[in-house]
Design a protein around this nucleic acid. Sequence first.
DNA 1: TGCTATTATGGGAGCGCTCCCATGAAGTGA
DNA 2: TCACTTCATGGGAGCGCTCCCATAATAGCA
Lengths: 338, 338
Amino acid sequence: MSTTLEEIAKQAGVSRSTVSRVMNDHPSVDQDTRARVRSVAERLNYQPNVAARSLAVGRTNVIGLVIPMGVSALFTDPYFPLLIQGITSACNANEHSVMLWLAEPEYERRTIRQVLQGGLIDGVILASALMEDPMLEALQRRGLPFIMVGRLPSDNQISYVDVDNVNSAREMVSYLLRLGHRRVATIAGPTNMIAGSDRLEGYRLALRNRGLTPDPALIVEADFTEEGGYVAMQRLLPQAPNAVFVASDAMAIGAMRALREAGLRVPDDIAIAGFDDIPMSARMEPTLTTVRQPIQRMGSLAAETLIDMISHPHPQPRRIILPTELVIRESSGFAPNR
Amino acid sequence: MSTTLEEIAKQAGVSRSTVSRVMNDHPSVDQDTRARVRSVAERLNYQPNVAARSLAVGRTNVIGLVIPMGVSALFTDPYFPLLIQGITSACNANEHSVMLWLAEPEYERRTIRQVLQGGLIDGVILASALMEDPMLEALQRRGLPFIMVGRLPSDNQISYVDVDNVNSAREMVSYLLRLGHRRVATIAGPTNMIAGSDRLEGYRLALRNRGLTPDPALIVEADFTEEGGYVAMQRLLPQAPNAVFVASDAMAIGAMRALREAGLRVPDDIAIAGFDDIPMSARMEPTLTTVRQPIQRMGSLAAETLIDMISHPHPQPRRIILPTELVIRESSGFAPNR
DNA sequence: TGCTATTATGGGAGCGCTCCCATGAAGTGA
DNA sequence: TCACTTCATGGGAGCGCTCCCATAATAGCA
């Protein structure tokens, strides 16, 4: 039932080409003709056929968003929702649409093919938290424009939007050290995720900057979930740390649950700091000291940058680092001896 | 750089048509030819051009997922992530892709046009929680296949997948009443959302079934957020209810925070029951009695049903109601006098 | 052996659009 | 007035695919 260019042309008494020019804001069309065509198009509620346009022009104005579902843990915290919101919002504003792929392991190869070939999309946002993602390699080989959310330290030819996880973590841990906590432990994220390994790196740096040697016994790895944080904290308890830098708020919440059960008070007996600043963190008891990252903004920037990369190809990778913010609340406490 | 049918044809020494037949598993192709074409396609890593196929065949194998962003509150609880996961998973399994639109109010009209026309998608999943959604009307007028997640009580010509909010709420409130609580209040969801008004309806039904008249003073409306639940509970406190049925777990968590601050113990002083069974609910202190709904499964079913509707058009609307489950935990307590 | 079903394949048209080139009208300067 | 540019428009080709129809090769049967 959908109207075609030809139909509009007939009704407006012009040719297909002229209508096409009007629809694409081509300059050399007479004012009157333009107005006439516009009104007919309006009346017939004309909307160009995307498939036909794509076929002719080789562009779809659709970008793909690929999220590896191996990390489904992340889906329980607000990270991805916020990211998606930022991305779709920027796409809306730039007349693009978003195709969503949750890359489930069992369909991985097919997803990759679909994403890469077939001309469905003009570019890809890869919200991969994984250190090595097969999709990444395929994207590079293919030459499809793409941008990562979260940086890949191993390759500096890749465009990305990220926060400086290393430095943010370093600053937070430095802050804990400055408060006077001596045994500062960390509950790290999975080291096969970029954010996980970067935040751990920041933790180590902060210690070294104070002339301290990171103690492996004070480093426990978990999976970014509340449950993981809970278990990790229990494993950490025998080490009797004064403070714990937890690599995500979700894990910090779990850690605090473990502490509560163990009869320890935060921050009096042990200080806690998280990372992410999810909405829950401000409502804990005690409220959680954490690192705020501009997730939604990362999403919009990734989309905008990608769209720009598609229309203005350019060999240089774009690298965007957004600032984070230390949010000091109750859980970090004050220096016991300063 | 992408290979075309014609290219495969040339290399395999057959015609475009034959290659097309092979790719679409058409029966009347010689075994040898088929094998030869297959191997060439494999070697050249051929992937049919989606735009061209869509243009020719009038189908895209893409479905749209439309989420009204007016209800961004829902994005902070795991409802939408789980729903999306269910949908994409079913789409993966059925060789479809998902186009995501978060319908921001400012782009609403354009979104609607994009979604409906342009032939980008074959059908729509409308995860609308709103009682009246302009998208809905547009979809109906257009005749594009679509299915809702969450039922629309006012219209029985629309296909949907839903849980029985009314009865689930009724059962939960009946349970609270059976425990012996006499003054049972409710923190309802927004009444312009279907789930909100349905759960309130269930609350009223349960009271009436016990011969009680719902007391407007015991009914407070909030917005499904933690913060909203917190404020609502504070407004409810002067009424001194024995139990509160809260229409979402997120709100229940907020309500419990308000109670804690007011020095009231759950469930000893006041019983609480929620709705949703988000992961957090099992880890509260006390753990939260709630209604579990199969969100992810609703997503997959919606996708599968929609895909079926697209390939087998049928005037009858499909209506699917999934069962819920009462999850009795600590917060509902035991009967004070039974 | 001749005739009709059956099977395997090729080629043309067309999906709705864009983009290039051709054409005619109008405007410019000598 | 005549070349010469500029502007507005039309028409053809082609994007890569599917689908229909034609045709050639083979099989089936009297």
